[in-house]
Design a protein around this nucleic acid. Sequence first.
DNA 1: TTAGGTGCAAATCTTTTGCAGAAAG
DNA 2: CTTTCTGCAAAAGATTTGCACCTAA
Lengths: 167, 167
Amino acid sequence: MEARVEKIKQLLQSQGFKLTPQREATVRVLLENEEDHLSAEDVFMLVKEKFPEIGLATVYRTLELLTEMHVVEKLNFGDGVARYDLRTESNKHHHHHLICVRCGSMTEIMDDWLLPLEERLEKEYRFRVLDHRLDFQGVCASCREKEEAEGKEPSGAGAETGVTYNV
Amino acid sequence: MEARVEKIKQLLQSQGFKLTPQREATVRVLLENEEDHLSAEDVFMLVKEKFPEIGLATVYRTLELLTEMHVVEKLNFGDGVARYDLRTESNKHHHHHLICVRCGSMTEIMDDWLLPLEERLEKEYRFRVLDHRLDFQGVCASCREKEEAEGKEPSGAGAETGVTYNV
DNA sequence: TTAGGTGCAAATCTTTTGCAGAAAG
DNA sequence: CTTTCTGCAAAAGATTTGCACCTAA
C-alpha cells in the first residue's frame, strides 16, 4: 500500500506535479476501495471523512490528473456519473463488466478474452488498440434462478428485457 | 422508410402511445441519419428544420420513450452527451466502435465477434446476455500513417497514448 | 372527456472554471 | 518569487420536471 502510494508520488513528481495531502488522501481512498467503481461524489465523501476541509473541485481535479497520468481509468456506465477505477497490473486491459438489467448488480471478469480480437483489428483495420471497454447487459445467475423459481419463462420478453424490435 | 415509420407507429400504439407529428419528425430524423450517432441536441436541430415549433424537452422525451421501446439505443462515448442509434436488423448486437484517440474519428464494425464470448458467459457465469457494448480506443489507420510519415515512432508513448503505469 | 402530449421555463445534477489566497520548491 | 495547488462560489452544460394548455380516440 505504502509502496503503491510512493509509486504514484514518483510518477507525479516525474511530471512536475506534487502529491499534496489532498491528493494523497484521494489516492488512498481509491486504494482502499479498489473493488468499487467510485464516482467523484463518492470519492469526495470518503476523502472528507479523513480530510474534512477538502473541496469537491479538488477531487475532480485530482481525478482528472490521475486519469491523464493513466493511474485511474474513467468509466461510464450510462448512469449519469463518471466512475473511476485504479489501473493495476491485474485489471489493465482486462476489465469487462456483466451488468444485470434486473437487479443492477455488476460483476467483473478479468480474463482477457479480447486479445485475439485486438489482433484481428490490427490486421484487418490497421487500428492500434490502446484500450477497450466491454460491457454486457443481461440477467445474472441469481436473478435467473429467482425468475425460474417463480415459474416465469426462462429468459423473458417484455418491457425491460432487452427485446429488440427491429425497425 | 415509410414501412419502418409504420412499424414504429404500430409498436407505439400497441403500448398505448401515439406517434404524434413531433415524434414522427424525430423518428424520421433518426432514419435519415442512421449512420451517425446523434446527440439529443443534434436531433433537436435537425427536427427543427422541418418542425420549427418543437421543444428540446419533447425531443428528450421522445428519445427516452424510443429507448424504453428498444427502438433506439442510448450510447455513451464519454464526451458528456448521450447519443442515440436506431436498433436495426443489421446493427442489433453487432455494434462495435473503434475510437481514435488522435483524431476522434469513430469507425463501426458490424461483425459479431462476440458470439463465442457470449456463449462462454452463459456457460461459465450463467449470465444471459441481452446486449453488449464494445468500444476500442486506439489509433486509426490514417493517424498511424500520418505519424509514420512524420517520422514518429510507430505507436508512441506519451501523455495521451494509453500508456499504463501500473500502481 | 380523459389520458396522453407539448412547449416553455425553471429546476436539477454533474462537472468545470475564475479567482484570491496558501504552500512548496 | 514563481509555479503549483486549494477552496469557494459561480458558471456551464446536459437533462428532467412542473405546469397550463392542447389534441386526439
